[in-house]
Design a protein around this nucleic acid. Structure first.
Lengths: 249, 249
DNA sequence: CGAATAATTGACTGAGATCAACCCCCGTGG
DNA sequence: CCACGGGGGTTGATCTCAGTCAATTATTCG
């Protein structure tokens, strides 16, 4: 049997990661909370940021470290997670370019509640928590925008509590895939393509389950023709079916 | 057998609920995010609020209603919850005097994601989302304080995701009781007293469990002498033991 | 005092975790 | 170029926690 090339990925080649100045300005200007700043203000804000490159798997900070910085993902993927004493860990969020994380609240003696790790190679901008608070102080619209983002995340977290409390694994995974697609998905010939390395274990840690269960559910979805998966991607082929699963409940 | 009076409650009598003007000003001034306002500013803010009395069980808003107001609990308890199509509901938060809820984020065409219900009789202050945004716009420190609160809540929600994902019912209930005590508990001869009507069903909805399981776990804790419960209260007698349960995991 | 509601307790069951074997893919070095 | 080794993925068998169903007892309220 002839083996067809079947990955839908277009640009497997990834250049060595470093933020270009151009990228920085475009990125910061594109953030919802700096969108309203004038160019000169934006440039002043830009001065306050430092940048760092990360290898896949590198830690950005650990739970318990003093919370001194606010970070913005410029390129790559970052995961936030928490680890139980039992060794089991829970993936709290998977961040992509434009997302911020780290210390927002800044009542001084604070520690990061979770651990941040580069999930792929990438580049991250960093600002001190104090500097960021000053920016907010100077620009009320920024505060409002940040508030909106926080409200949105709080809602997402509550949604997850809801899923974990009241739905079986199958539906939690469907919901998680839809959420990921919503965040990271790119339209494709046959569906929404999620281009990120996502192991069964990652999926399990996102849904409060185990790699084995995640594998079973994913296989089942594949057999039904709802999704297709490969080495660094998952494609959702039948959004309606997946949505149906979680609606009916 | 002589029946001793064994409730630790001091003030079982509750007066008919209506906010006194005095209460309003003390309350608003005491809120972390208005603490930094000058008296005249505070009084102006106070003008913007309206007050409503609620009976236990009354709904303040339903999930899906257009999100027009921000609320602050003045007196009594309010619960926020979400209901699944299956009928199962999840208690997202139990609020007490000084807590706010409702619409913060204000990108206009929004709906409340959850339902708010008076859990006890009480009094609630209300301000339009627009007015609140104006206050934030005028007073950056308020924005920072609100941000802190939001960050704190986001962390609490993530903590709950963590519990639901990685701990058995027994430990989730222990953790929930500790969290409640932290928020609502008053020191007592023999421990921390949580004075609130908390049915087994409420507890189940807070922990992603069932009334039966909640009952079993509570009995077990009682037999161990770690807690004591009664009509409108739960008292935590052995915080160390409860904490131990969740630490070791 | 009796009806209604909440809590408790027990027996049964099932979703999913765990344990374990196996396979498939991919990179590496002979 | 192929054999090897290893990590992730898959699949199956078993077991357990806790959800469900049901009966009983305790409480509250009219």
């Amino acid at each position: 049997m002839k083996k067809a090339r079947k990955t839908p990925l277009e640009i497997p080649a990834t250049a060595p990661q470093l933020c270009t100045v151009d990228l920085r300005l475009r990125l910061l200007g594109g953030l919802p909370f700096f969108a309203q700043l004038r160019p000169d203000e934006l440039s002043a804000v830009n001065q306050k940021f430092r940048e760092d490159g990360y290898q896949a798997g590198e830690f950005i900070y650990h739970a318990g470290d003093p919370a001194a910085h606010l970070y913005v993902v410029a390129e790559g993927r970052v995961k936030l997670f928490q680890t139980a004493a039992s060794g089991r860990s829970v993936l709290l969020d998977l961040l992509t370019a434009g997302d911020f994380f780290g210390s927002l609240s800044g009542l001084p003696p604070t520690a990061y509640p979770d651990t941040a790790q580069a999930h792929t190679a990438g580049c991250i901008l960093r600002i001190s928590a104090d500097d960021f608070r000053q920016i907010i102080d100077l620009h009320p619209p920024v505060a409002l925008a940040v508030l909106d983002t926080m409200a949105h995340r709080l809602h997402a977290a509550n949604q997850r509590v809801f899923l974990l409390s009241s739905m079986p694994v199958e539906q939690r995974i469907a919901a998680t895939l839809l959420r990921l697609a919503d965040k990271l998905g790119q339209p494709d010939k046959t569906g929404l393509l999620i281009h990120t390395p996502l192991s069964r274990e990652d999926l399990a840690e996102m849904t409060g389950s185990t790699p084995e269960s995640a594998s079973r559910v994913v296989s089942q979805f594949q057999k039904a023709g709802w999704i297709a998966t490969g080495r660094q991607w998952i494609s959702l082929r039948d959004l309606a079916a997946l949505r149906g699963l979680i609606e009916v409940s």
